[in-house]
Design a protein around this nucleic acid. Sequence first.
DNA 1: TCTGGGGTCCTAGGACCC
DNA 2: TCTGGGGTCCTAGGACCC
Length: 423
Amino acid sequence: MSVFAIVDCNNFYVSCERVFYPELERKPVVVLSNNDGCVVARSNEAKALGIRLGSPVFKIADIIESGGVYVYSSNYALYGDMSHRVMKLLAEFTPDMEVYSIDEAFLDLSCFSHYDLNGYGIRIKDRIRRCVGLPVAIGIAETKTLAKIACRLAKKSEKAGGVLDLTGSPYQEMALSMTDVEDVWGVGRRYTKFLRRNGITNARQLRDTDENMLREKYGVLGSRLVQELKGVACYTVESCPSSKKGITVSRSFRYPLETLGDLEEAVVGYVSIGAEKLRKEGLCAEILVVFLMTNRFSKIDPLYYNLETVRLPVATSDTSELISYARKGLKNIYRSGYRYKKAGVMFNGMVSEDWVQRDLFDTRDRKSAVRLMSTLDSINRTIGKDSVQYATAGLGNTQKWKTVRKRKSRSYTTNWEHLLEVS
DNA sequence: TCTGGGGTCCTAGGACCC
DNA sequence: TCTGGGGTCCTAGGACCC
C-alpha cells in the first residue's frame, strides 16, 4: 500500500520570525510582500482579526493599528535558510521525499505502513519543533490529495494535535464530508464555481461524482482528482525534480518609473539576478523575454503592456550578452509618456550548459565569458551579494527599482553580523 | 499615495513532416 | 469523383499551485 505524508509548516514566514523573537508568540503578526505591499503570511491571531491573505497594507491600516498587529517585511534569506533546515531534518525520516514548496514536503512512507504512522508523524513534528523551532502539521493518507486533506484537518483540530493519519481510517468519510470542495488540492476558484453549481459542495461528493462528467469539463486532471480522492494514487513523490523550464525575474516598483534610463537599470538588474540563477542551475537560455507594464489598478493613468521575445543565436547564461539583448528589446517596446509600475525578464528554451548547440559563424569569445561569469559568481558568493555588479544596473541609492523593505528582521542565520547575542 | 512574485501542467489549434 | 494515418513542435490561453 502506498502511504504519503505531507509536512506543512504553520504560517511559515510568521513562524520563522517568531523563532528569533519569541515575544511574538500568541500575538497577531503579519509578513508583507515586496515593497511592503500585501499581506503574504498571517499568524492565527492576525487571521482572527479578519486580515485576509493578499490584502494591501493600506487597506487594513486601521486593523493593524487597533489590533496591535506586528508587521514585518519579508526576509527571504531567513525563510530560505529555515526551509533548508527543515528539509534536511525531514530527509532523515524517509528514503524518498519531494520538496514541494518553501514550507511543504511530501514524504513517501510506504515502507512504514506497518508501523504506527500517527506516532511516526508525532516524532517528525517534535523533532522539527525541537531542532528548528518551527511548528508543523502533518497529514498522512493513501494519496497526495488525501494527505493534503488530512493535513488541513490536523492544523484545524485541537484533538489531532498537528498530526492526522487517515490511512484505512473509518474517519476518512467524515474528513471528506468536512472538507469544502474549494479546499481540495487542485480545485481553484473557477472549478469551485462549476462544482457548486452542480451541487457538489464537499470533498466526499466530489469523490462520488461521475468521473466522465468531470473529465469532460476538466480534462485528465478531473479524473485524477476523483481517483486520488478514492484512494488510488495518480501522483508519486518526485524526489528528483526535473530541471527548470523557465526563470522569471520581475518586480513592481515602489514609485512609477517613466524614463527609458530608469527602466534600463531595472531590466539590467533583473537580468543579472536571472543569469546568476541560470548559472547556478547549470543552464543556458535560448529565449529571452522583456516586458513592462503600467499600473493595472490606476483609474487615471493610461494602461500599457508590452513584451518582446528575443531568440538568441546561441543559448547563453552570460550576463553581459543577455543584458545587451534585453536592452535592445526594452528599447523596442518602450513608449514615452507612460508611468511604468512593473518590468521583468523571462528566460526560456533552457538547455544544459554542457549541451549548447554552437553556431559555426559565432564570433563571440564564449570561453572567456564563462570564466568571467564564474569569477563574478565566486566573488559575490564569498564577499557578499552584489559586491561586483554591472554599472548599467545603477549604483547604490540611485537605484529607483530596488524594492523597499522597511520592517525587515535581521538575517540571523545567514549573516555573521546579524548573529544573535546571548548574555 | 500605497495593490507580490514565481512556477507547473493541460488543451486546442496551426504549421509542418513522412 | 474519390483525399489516410500518424506524428512533432510551437504558441496562446486557461487553470492551478505556493
